[in-house]
Amino acid sequence: MSPPKIELSGVKKAFGEKIVLDGIDYALPEGESLVVIGGSGSGKSVLLKCILGIIRPDAGSIRIDGEETVGAGSEAREKVRGKIGMLFQGSALFDSLPVWQNVAFRLIQGQGMERRQAKEIALGKLAQVGLAPPVAELYPAELSGGMQKRVALARAIASDPEIIFFDEPTTGLDPIMADVINDLIVASVKKLGATTISITHDMASARKIATRIAMIYGGKFIWAGEAKDIDRSGNAHVDQFIHGRAEGPIQMAVRRP
C-alpha cells in the first residue's frame, strides 16, 4: 500500500507561552479532501504553514509522499513545495503584476517557462475559473473580491499541483459568490485529482468541498471522520460548532455582561 499523501504525527508549535498546536496526528490518503474546521485563532493557518515549511514546528513529523519535511534541507523543501498549490485567505495576489503574470508566476519564475507559453496556460486556467481573456491584462486592485479569489484559485492550480491548500476560501464573499467559488474548487480538484486540505469556519463551504472533516480545538484534532458523519459526530464541541451556538463546551474568551 502506498504511504498516505500527507501524514502528520505529533506536530507541536508554540509562540512564546501560547501553545497553538499541541500534538496533531492525521494521515490523509491521496485524492481525499480534508476540511479542518475550528474557531478563529485555533491554529488552523499555523498548521498549513507548518506543512508548507513557512513555519517550523517545535516537534513532530510531517511526511509528504512518505518523505519527512520537518528539518529537511532547503532543496528537499523546495521539491515538496513544488507539489503544493495554495489559495490564500486574502488572495495574496501580487499587486505589481497583471492578472496573467500572477497566474503564470510559478511557471515563469519557478520553472523558467517561456513567457508566451506561460501566458497561454494562464489564460486557460483563467477560463477554467470563468474569467475572460480581457481580465488577464488588468491589475489585481482593479478586480472585485470575488474575481480576485478566482484569480487566486487559477494561480493555485496553474502548475497542476498534486496537493492544494485552501485557506478560508469563502471568507469575505457573499453567499452566492461563496458557492460559486466552492463549485470551482470542487471542479478543479476533481479535474486535477489533487489531495487537498482546506481550513474554514464556513460550514456550507466545508460540507461542499470536504470528503473528510477534522475539528481543531485546543491545539488538537478533537474529532476527525468522513464528511457525511459530521452531523452524527457525537461530539459536543463539534455539534456546537456546526450549529453555531454561543452556549456549549467551547467558551469564547468574551466577557459576559
Binding site: 504553514k49 508548507l52 513557512i54 523546495e78 513545495r81 513544488g82 503544493i84 498549490g85 495554495m86 490564500f88 485567505q89 486574502g90 495574496a92 495576489l93 501580487f94 499587486d95 508566476f105 510559478r106 519564475q109 519557478g110 520553472q111 494561480r155
Partner: peptide, 21 residues
C-alpha cells in the same frame, strides 16, 4: 504591505525565494 497581505508567503509557496526576488 506584501508581508501583511501574505504576498511574501505566496512567493515562497510559488517556489520563489523572497530574498532573491
Amino acid at each position: 504591505t506584501m508581508r501583511v497581505t501574505e504576498q511574501i508567503d505566496a512567493l515562497t509557496v510559488l517556489s520563489t525565494d523572497p530574498y532573491k526576488y
